[in-house]
Design a protein around this nucleic acid. Structure first.
Lengths: 192, 192
DNA sequence: CGGCAAGTTGACCTGACTCAAGCCACGTGG
DNA sequence: CCACGTGGCTTGAGTCAGGTCAACTTGCCG
């Protein structure tokens, strides 16, 4: 068991072992030379990180919060049928998510992206941890992270959230807390 | 063996069987309600289409040109170890490609996208079929397709290609033919 | 209470989109 | 073989969504 705070694995690192998230949230991303960052997946407890077959990590992973990871060695992976089963299931889920995300990044407007994100929050929130209360969604993502996930700048995220708040489609509590007041409206804004 | 011209499988169609491309090129994409289209992969001979384990196709595939496909039934897939091996290899390749593509769509400028695309053309061109001559790259993609692949409009693609031509970094022949004259410059433009 | 990181807001800028017109390549039929 | 039609490419002018820059506020921790 590996308790970890920050970088789980850097781009280009030799792989083979995989990690299971026991607690906490992890973001999967790539960075460009000049610091531009694109997050393409957000994982929670139960998810596996690292490609068993692959030779090197082609991406970076970082814990959003303190989290507990369980490490499986290549040898362990090789003999465990259930582990392999889970890995390939997760691969499929990841492909599906990435395809949807590519559509979002390539073809949706800022507001459509924000609305999609908010609609996806409930599942994400569940995956990432405790909900603090009825309908109140908690996320460890900072607005910069949300921006890097949606291919937008912080200011754009903040502005669009402000618009949604002003039209009482959502409301916000403390840091990273959202409440979806009008799902139908969000749905309408997310999908043309 | 299934000779096919157009739609290979529509979004939401029940799956189970997979296809191998014997000849021709296939694009993998999703479309938004109002027609916005995002292409996320371009496949050539040797590639497999369709997720074996999945229940439904969550994307569309379309032949770029006349092409020949080989169909495997779910039963065939179930018993063939080599087929399963190839499938999971391709899954990994696809994830890697999708991640790189998400970075491109979310964080790169139009010119960076075009340059990246041109640099990737040689492999793509090989995958998709014959090269007509020394250094001359042929693609069945129309500029609209390139745009839909890179998350850009046709006009933007055309304009940026024009800039590259004017600076003699590339030259173009007939429909869909490119010649890369200054790879180093492209490299510089693609990666910051 | 102080200090710092995160979020908000305004003013301005610009890269990519939109709209529109014209051009070119290619296939078809006379 | 050429005239014509059509779909794809090019180019210009103008617009606008989202980025940039900068100041200010808020929340969070000691």
């Amino acid at each position: 068991m590996v308790p970890s705070r920050l970088i789980a694995c850097a781009e280009g690192t030799a792989s083979g072992s995989i990690y299971e998230i026991l607690e906490g949230g992890v973001i999967i991303f790539k960075t460009l030379g000049d610091g531009r960052r694109q997050i393409f997946d957000i994982l929670g407890p139960g998810s596996l990180i690292g490609n068993a077959a692959g030779q090197t990590y082609n991406y970076s992973a970082e814990c959003l919060t303190k989290c507990r990871l369980l490490k499986y060695s290549p040898a362990e992976v090789a003999v465990s049928a259930t582990l392999q089963q889970r890995l390939s299931q997760q691969l499929l889920r990841m492909i599906e998510a990435l395809q949807e995300h590519a559509l979002l990044l390539g073809r949706r407007t800022a507001m459509e992206r924000i609305a999609s994100f908010l609609l996806a929050l409930p599942q994400l929130s569940i995956r990432l941890g405790r909900q603090p209360g009825e309908g109140l969604l908690q996320t460890a993502l900072k607005q910069r992270d949300i921006g890097d996930y949606l291919g937008l700048k912080v200011e754009t995220v903040s502005r669009n959230l402000a618009i949604l708040k002003r039209s009482t489609i959502i409301s916000t509590g403390k840091r990273g807390q959202f409440r979806l007041l009008d799902m139908a409206a969000l749905q309408r804004m997310a999908d043309p």
